[in-house]
């Protein structure tokens, strides 16, 4: 256990806890956009920045990546932080003006509009990398990644057309905070739409009731991974005994 101070509150936390976790455990709000319990922290959005003071030296760190330390003094809401966070939110608003999650954060942080120019009003991706992390860490497939440098950065499958590693599970669409990745089942096809790629997968039909109930590739993957008999997935869950 280490003892530290967050916003004047003395707090005890387990070693290996991040500042963000410690703060949240004590109901201290820190805004985040790229954190999700399912995956490891990454530090993409920088919204979670806080001020830490150690041996009388102050600096700004991303609280989702910084671990608690004995005697650390942390501030989550100084003027300097508000200024920088406001700037980040303005940049995000200009990048993704239609992203609900961004709008909500902006509202919560008191930012009404952005002074920056909107380039593509339909861009929904904030480049948080939650989708690529869930695909790598939880699904274990690494079918997608962030590609290109700088302003061209985006989420994509290799060459924008190689979906070999993708099992169509939809975890990316599910975890995406801004609906930049969409999933739709149309008839016998699952369609996953990313900012610049569109993937289609065949769904398996239940011989008994006729519904298309799961992507064939995902079932193959589960059969292989769990080493179970393919028979298990002959029927859809509803028609199974």
């Amino acid at each position: 256990m280490v003892t530290l101070t967050i916003d004047g509150q003395r707090i005890q936390a387990e070693e290996g806890t991040t500042l963000l976790e410690a703060a949240r455990d004590h109901n201290i709000y820190i805004p985040t956009l790229c954190v999700n319990e399912a995956v490891s922290p990454y530090g993409a959005c920088r919204l979670c920045l806080v001020e830490v003071t150690k041996k009388e030296r102050q600096r700004l760190v991303a609280s989702c990546l910084y671990f608690v330390e004995e005697g650390l003094i942390v501030r989550t809401d100084s003027e300097r932080i508000a200024l920088i966070r406001g700037m980040i939110i303005e940049l995000l608003l200009a990048r993704c003006p239609k992203a609900g999650e961004v709008q909500e954060l902006a509202k919560r942080l008191g930012v009404r509009e952005s002074r920056f120019r909107v380039e593509d009003e339909n861009n929904l991706c904030v480049l948080c990398a939650l989708c690529t992390r869930v695909c790598q860490e939880v699904v274990g497939q690494s079918a997608i990644s962030l590609v290109n440098p700088g302003t061209d950065r985006e989420v994509a499958i290799p060459f924008y057309d190689n979906s070999d590693a993708c099992i169509a599970c939809g975890s990316c669409a599910y975890i995406c905070p801004t609906e930049a990745i969409k999933l739709e089942d149309v008839g016998d096809t699952r369609i996953i739409t990313m900012p610049n790629c569109r993937l289609e997968f065949k769904l398996k039909q239940c011989p008994k009731c006729g519904t298309y109930w799961a992507p064939e590739k995902q079932l193959e993957y589960m059969i292989k991974k769990a080493n179970i008999s393919p028979k298990v997935f002959d029927l859809c869950p509803d028609c199974r005994e």
């Binding site: 690494s142 590609v147 290799p158 070999d164 590693a165």
Partner: peptide, 10 residues
């Protein structure tokens, strides 16, 4: 994974 190689290459 190919996605990682592609990410670095681009």
């Amino acid at each position: 994974p190919l996605s990682r190689v592609y990410s670095v290459a681009t």
